[in-house]
Design a protein around this nucleic acid. Structure first.
Lengths: 200, 200
DNA sequence: ACCTGAACACCGTTCAAGT
DNA sequence: ACCTGAACACCGTTCAAGT
């Protein structure tokens, strides 16, 4: 649990340790305003050591965001039902998995969409973000072929779905969909509205 | 433009000056990571002076977010057409005004939904945020009465619309709806899908 | 009542020096 | 090749002291 004075001078796998420590801190706080020095402290190294593995803090944040998008992709793919039944039976599990991912990892989810915060140079990151979009695109294209989903240009339809899922997740994380204002299950209601906009 | 040495010891209306300087800095950058010391510098006062008007930086951010929600509300109300024609003619202008507000004020919009970042104590702020929700609720309720909008429980339907607009705005601000990936006008496509989910 | 200047405890980042 | 310790230029925040 705690590494004391007998810790070797060389950490061994500091890069991974920094990432895992940072991910752990993301789970403890609700925002991603942790400090690099604190990460180094908890990893048991000097505050300068992480700079041997990441050029700066932004690079670590970008790395964490990439991991987040990978995990989201895996979560969505795992939620896809094997058998294609009705649209509700195939789409709702995926949609709920998306929102649940954000609820379970609020700080990470925020970081994924806020780390660059206006730096359009993070090409890697937006490419990875678009893997989410690609999953939706595939899903909708297959649904249209099967006659379950209204025939519309797929990219725009996928953008609509992504926007709905992203907005819903953000509002949930922000605690803005209060039951007393918005009804008992705003998520279900919102997803139902989306369904009614895409079903054949 | 610049106030030099003949500036009086007492600013006069420092509170307003701090807010306006901060708003100006929000427009210059894409994120809201400005420093309080820089605000004070540009307002021509010492870095400690703002603390006489705001208990801390979070309080200033909350104030800016409140202003943002007020401006968004005014923008939406101004975009509401006087004559109620078809649903497309009444809803699309409001929806486009919402997204356009985010595009025109990316840092402010981000701040509005990210300033508290997990502090659920900011009751004032979430109350103000819900004024956006209230506008949508009124709009949908009137639309249902007029037979333009599908009859569904209004709070859930409003949550769906808010989520779609919020998610769309965030994705646009983040530069994630690239034309080459998502089509020429992803915003129109997404709003059309939403329309098809709520029209009678 | 409102503002300043010095001070405190922090950051992110760099770099010569250690192992 | 990898890590440390001191150092630099910053922050946010506080507080006695000035006007």
């Amino acid at each position: 649990m705690t590494e004391q004075s007998d810790r070797p001078y060389h950490h061994g796998d500091l890069r991974r340790a920094v990432i895992e420590t940072a991910l752990a801190m993301l789970h403890e706080e609700e925002g991603w305003q942790f400090t690099l020095r604190e990460v180094a402290r908890r990893a048991g190294v000097s505050h300068a050591a992480p700079y041997k593995h990441f050029p700066d803090k932004a690079a670590l944040l970008a790395e964490l965001a990439l991991i987040g998008f990978d995990r989201l992709r895996e979560t969505l793919l795992a939620a896809l039902p094997a058998s294609a039944a009705s649209l509700r039976e195939t789409f709702l599990p995926v949609a709920r998995a998306y929102v649940a991912f954000g609820e379970a990892n609020p700080a990470l989810y925020r970081l994924m969409f806020g780390a660059d915060a206006g730096k359009p140079s993070e090409v890697h990151l937006s490419e990875r973000a678009l893997s989410t979009f690609a999953i939706l695109t595939d899903f909708l294209a297959r649904g249209q072929e099967a006659g379950l989903i209204r025939e519309r240009p797929v990219p725009g339809q996928a953008a609509a779905c992504w926007a709905q899922l992203h907005g819903l997740t953000m509002l949930v994380i922000d605690g803005l969909l209060l039951p007393e204002k918005v009804g008992d299950d705003a998520v279900t209601a919102a997803l139902t509205t989306l369904l009614e906009g895409i079903e054949a």
